[in-house]
Each structure stands twice: as C-alpha cells, then as structure tokens.
Design a protein around this nucleic acid. Structure first.
Lengths: 335, 335
DNA sequence: GATCATATCCAAAACGTTTTGGGGAAACGC
DNA sequence: GCGTTTCCCCAAAACGTTTTGGATATGATC
C-alpha cells in the first residue's frame, strides 16, 4: 500500500511536499507537482481516509438513522432516497452510514450514541414528527442535520419536504368538483408532521367548499389498518362517497374494504392515496395518487447537508417540493 | 470532549494505564481500574473511533453496495435486511456503510474504489449473479465478503440464500397436483442466480411429473414486464392454465394480464409469485407466494461477516434457508 | 542481604495524514 | 555589495489511540 512516506522516499522529497503537491498548493513547483502526481498515479496512491479524518478532526461521514418496523419509511421512497443520497455524498467524498433503530426510547439512545461517538459530521432525520425530540437534541449537541419532512418548532432548521397540504387540497377540490359531498379522510398517525399537513389540506378544502370536515379517521399506514378504518367508516351512518387516504398503503386497504361492502370503486366511491407506490398502479382499479420527485428531494437533501457542514446554514433552509397528481380509475378520473 | 490524555492528567496516571484499565487488562491494579472506570463514566468518555481505527489498522466498518434502478433489490426485503444488519453490526461496534451504484461498469468502479480506499473491513454482496466479477475481484483483493445469494464458482465463499429451487419445486408440485398440465414459468433475468435456481425448481418438478417444461418466458422483475410476458403467453397457441412467476411483482403483472384476457384468476388460471411483498396480499385475488425469514437471513449474514473478519472463513460457509409457502386465492388454494 | 519473581505502572513509538513555521537559495532593487 | 522579496522546499508537531518494552517497588526465597 503506497503511503505519503513511501512516495516521498521514492521521489527524494519530503512528506510535506508530496502532500502539498497532491493537494495542489501553489508553493510547490509546477514541475515537482507534475512529478508527484505521476508517481502517485503510478503507485495507485489513495490517501488513508482514517488518518486524514483523525488529523482533520472530521469524519467525512453522514449518518442516517432508519426507523425499523413499526413506523417504517415507505419503501420505494426510502430506497430511492438512499440511492440519491449515496451518489451525491460519494461525489464529495462523504460516506453514508446507516444506523437502525426501533422507534421509541431506543431511537433516542442511538442518536445519543451517534452524537457522543462523533462518528458522523452530520445526519439526516427522516420521518420527522410534529414534536420531535431529535431536533433539540441535535441542535444542542451542535451536530448539523437536515430533516426529510418538517417539525413544529420556532428554531431555524434545514428541511426538505413535499407539499402535502397543497397536494391534499388539490385532490380534495377535484373530488368535490366531481360532485362528491361526503368526503372522508383516512389520516396517518398525527404525531407525524406529514400526516398533519395532509389532513390540513383536506380540512381546508372541505371548509372552503362549505362541506363538513368531520368524517376523519386515523390509522397506521398499512393496508390492514386502512381496510379496517374504511370498513368502519362505510358501516357508519354518514356513509362517505369518497375516501381521501393519507398514503397509498391505506388506500389499498380502503379499496378492498369498499369492494367488500359491495361498492364499485371509481363509480360508487372514490378512493385516493399518496406516494405512487408500484402497487397503486396495479390494484383493480388503479389508485389515484400523487407523487414526489424523490431524486430531486434526495439531491436537495444532500446539497443542504454539504452546505451545512462546509459553510453553515444555507440561505434557503427549508424547501418544499410540489406533488405531481396522478389521476387513475379509483377516483373515477381516468379510464 | 474527554480524551485519554485528559482523563490521565485528571487521575494523575499515564495514558497507557488509563487505556489499559479501560480495556480491562490484568496488569493494572483492581483499585486503579475501578477509579479509572468511574472517572471515565463521569466524564462520559468514549474513545475516538477514528484514532482507534488508525492505530489498529481496521475500519470497523462493513460496506454494502446497493444497486439502484434498474435491477434494484426488492424493497421490503432490502429494507428489512438493512435493519437487521445495522442492529447486529452495531452490537459489535461495526458501522454499516452504504454505497450506491448503478448496475454495470459503474458498479465495479465503486467496488474498486472501496477496495483501494480500505474504508471497509468487509462487505456484503447483494443480488448475486451467476457469473459475478465481484467475487473474484474481492477474493483477489483479500477483502472479506458475504453474499446474499449464490454464484457459480468453484472457489469457496460465504453466502446466505433462500432455497428458491426447493420452493419452486414445491409450488410446481402443488399446482400439478391441482390438475394443471400446461404450467408456464415467468422467469427473472437469468444472469441472476436466484432466477436460475427458481427456474430449475420449476423445470425439475415439471419433468418429474412428466410434463413439458418449455413454456417459459424471461422478463424483468417488474409489474409491467410481468404483464407483458403473461399477455404474450396467453396469446400463444399453447395457452397455459398456470403461471409460476419468479417474483411477486411479475405475478402482479401476470394477474392483470390474465384478467385482461377475460380469465378469472384462481379459477381459470393459477398464478403464483415469490417474496410475499405487502401488495401480494391485497391484489384481487390475493397472490399465492412464498417467503424468506429476512430477519434470520440478515442475522446469519451479519454473523458470518463478523466471523470472517475476526476469525476467518466460518465452518458453514454457505447457508440456505427454507422458504415458507403462502397459499392464497390466486392459485385456487385458499378462500 | 542478595536474588528473583510479581505486581503495577509508564515513556515512547507507531498508525498516515495535514499544517505550522520556518529555511535556504535565487532574483531583485538600490 | 547589501537588504529584501520570492520561490521552493522541509522538519516537526499534531490528531487520540494501542502496544511495546521496560522501570520501579514490593514481597518472597534462600
């Protein structure tokens, strides 16, 4: 393994000069720099990252604590996000470190350990909650972070999010314009900010249309929970003719519940979701949904993170991305 | 931040003694050890991992190169795998580093870089292929690795896999015993070992039953590709009455194709998959499939990896896990 | 009392890099 | 010829740990 030392002795130069030549400093003669670069390339020299990290006092690593079941991230989104993040960070020589933690007390312990160990220069918070202890913890520790999703705090923090509120206002407005009046909302657990924002979009559109916004049920973001919740709503006195679901997984369950109740989805009842997961295209009928451009979000996340580590809080600390509406048969808006 | 130096000077001891006390060496007096441990705990001392890594010459890190689209890992499996791996490795103070790479030339470049940079002590290979350049590359480089899935090589290597061959033999046998005769196979791309093994299971069961095993079509592991392939098969002269699909995503597409052809899935035609992804339970009808216990596989993977790093090739280099068959309506075996 | 084993501790080297604070020689200004 | 600047280079320190190879003191043995 070639080191600075071996290169230096081969070239009859000092370690300092070799190091500075490779880093492109101006105080080494152009000819020498050239010679050093040639030799380094020939020897396949790559600086020892551990040594550099020790000396520079930074870990060149970004950590992401991923929640495991239950409360897990939506799969296609999560994996795409990891891909983009990995690529973008690698381009700047940052490693992406993955930590796993079950939601709850254990999760905070993982963050604490990460902070103490200083194994990462920054971290990414996913599944941000409305009241999120992680934010204060990281701010206090002085560890830079970017949130995927928002939280309710007065403090300034960096985040990237999809505009769930606008998205749900839009879909609700469309459903209203199709003639629906009893439009229910199947919400995700309201400690998640995304759930609250999506709910708010629905609430606002309903009120703006002069409709009652009390047909709302909260459930976990799973097909089973969605099916159960939808079944309950459809058995109630105020049977809705439309179900605006917080996520596609809930919507898939809702479609099934509606069919079990003898309804033709897309004709007797409209169902919509959010995420545009693969499965939503292949249910029968296909599910109307909306989607975020994950690659943009991931790239934005990575850029903010790098900015934060290298130059402090970016000018645009928070970015909200629009959602693309995907009209399909489950709401009677396609086929 | 507490360091060995600060602890040592606070305690009036040498750095050596503090270090050795914390590591539990016998050559430090029990009373001193006690005193040191107390002080370290009080100061919240945690050793600087970068310094330790530099000194010990190991990175305490395991890398996983994840393929991005196309050819991506099945989502629920992948995320679960990451969770288990992260937990198991963290328990032994190993970090899990994630690298992203598009399949193809770029992928090998990522592996090369990882090897040269020595940022990881070992790595995990996923989506193992029948002829996999990565194996030879890593063996030559002397970087320990464990495969998720098998490859075709004479060399000894560590792997963990599901028994796709037995699983597909079993499902094919069941379908035969239901009275089907023209049983087609929708295979995944045959450069993946898993695809080859699943195919083989189907082939063997068909021949054992004295049936022709030429109704086979290969397609990507997506719903779209599955739909297209199934459509082609159903339009052919030798219309199959059963479709054994390599993956659930293919099966979901196949179900849709069958329905488009006017068939009632589960009655006129049997369809089966593999993976037991969430969506497979919520199609209409639900899809018969099989599943691997991902937590066991992940734990086994992590254990093998640690064994490899700390003690060399484990006794059982390769482990194959059985698949659990999940009978549902799409094959007429439930409801 | 000398010798030896044992128990306890420590100084210094090493891991490979980056950075500080010059140092020597050539070129330049007068 | 002398001082000053410019150009190129380098020795040494530093990052925080682990490990090597003793050193010192104490007690036991004869």
């Amino acid at each position: 393994m070639a080191t600075l030392r071996s290169l230096a002795s081969d070239l009859g130069l000092s370690i300092t000069t070799v190091s500075r030549a490779l880093d492109g400093y101006e105080d080494v003669a152009a000819a020498t720099r050239e010679r050093v670069n040639k030799a380094a390339a020939a020897a396949g020299y790559r600086p020892n990252s551990t040594a550099r990290r020790l000396r520079k006092g930074s870990s060149e690593t970004v950590a992401l604590v991923m929640p495991t079941e239950p409360g897990r991230f939506y799969e296609p989104v999560f994996v795409d996000l990891l891909s983009v993040l990995g690529e973008r960070l690698a381009a700047r020589h940052f490693d992406l470190m993955l930590l796993a933690a079950r939601p709850g007390a254990e999760e905070l312990a993982v963050y604490k350990r990460m902070i103490k160990d200083r194994r990462a220069d920054a971290c990414i918070i996913v599944r941000t909650r409305r009241h999120d202890e992680r934010i204060a913890m990281l701010q206090e520790a002085g560890l830079p972070f970017v949130c995927h999703g928002r939280t309710e705090t007065r403090a300034e923090y960096a985040y990237v999010d999809g505009d769930g509120e606008a998205g749900f206002r839009e879909v609700t407005n469309r459903i209203v314009s199709l003639g629906h009046r009893r439009i229910a909302h199947l919400a995700a657990p309201d400690h998640f900010t995304f759930a609250e924002l999506r709910s708010r979009g629905w609430h606002m559109a309903m009120r703006a249309a002069g409709l009652t916004d009390d047909l709302k049920l909260m459930c976990a973001s799973t097909e089973e929970a969605g099916e159960q919740a939808a079944t309950a709503l459809l058995a109630g006195p105020d049977k809705p003719t439309a179900l605006i679901c917080a996520t596609d997984r809930i919507a898939i369950g809702a479609v099934r519940a509606a069919q079990a109740a003898g309804l033709v989805v897309g004709r007797d009842i409209a169902v919509t979701g959010h995420d545009n997961i693969h499965a939503s295209r292949f249910t029968h009928p296909a599910i109307t949904t909306m989607e975020l451009d994950v690659r943009s979000v991931g790239a934005c996340l990575a850029d903010k993170l790098l900015h934060l580590v290298e130059r402090g809080m970016p000018e645009h600390a928070g970015d909200v991305f629009p959602l693309r509406q995907v009209l399909r048969a489950s709401s009677g808006e396609a086929n």
